[in-house]
Write a protein that binds this DNA or RNA. Structure first.
Lengths: 68, 68
DNA sequence: CAATAATGGAAAGCAAGCTTTACATCATAC
DNA sequence: GTATGATGTAAAGCTTGCTTTCCATTATTG
């Protein structure tokens, strides 16, 4: 799973910390997602998508093979 | 999080066990999702959506409040 | 009724997501 | 150069997702 989180966040000119606060998660969680340390839960994915007004599929890129 | 998994699966006339096999998860996982015992990981959500040719949002319903 | 098929659901255990704490790095500004 | 702000990253610990195993329930069918 890849994601366009950092790209989209920067487009909107907001900081990791601000995004984290808006989503009610820790800053480290945002950093970990942006740097691919793990995938979001589906709940967090929904929150992120809703925050940016996008669909989950527009932000998170699932590649059949790439596995976990 | 609610989901339309059971509904969609039955529309297609397939059994929990068949769906589980197609998605490479256990039958219990499918049953647990259908009966709301837990939410899927985002990877499983993608697999399910892709299997049915739908978007994640068409299958899993996120309600702002309803919490976890 | 007995047998089989499909589903429900619990328990234990491992894996993954998230938190808090803590420290390092990098850039910018003064 | 030092201070400050933003980000990277790691460790320990809790919670949630998923597996395997096991048994119960509810059709349906012979």
């Amino acid at each position: 799973m890849n994601n366009r989180l950092e790209e989209i966040r920067k487009q909107r000119g907001i900081k990791q910390e601000e995004l984290a606060a808006a989503l009610e998660v820790s800053r480290q969680t945002i950093g970990s997602l942006e740097n691919g340390r793990y995938n979001p839960s589906i709940l967090l994915a929904f929150k992120i998508a809703r925050f940016f007004g996008l669909s989950i599929e527009e932000i998170f890129i699932y590649e059949e093979d790439g596995k976990v």
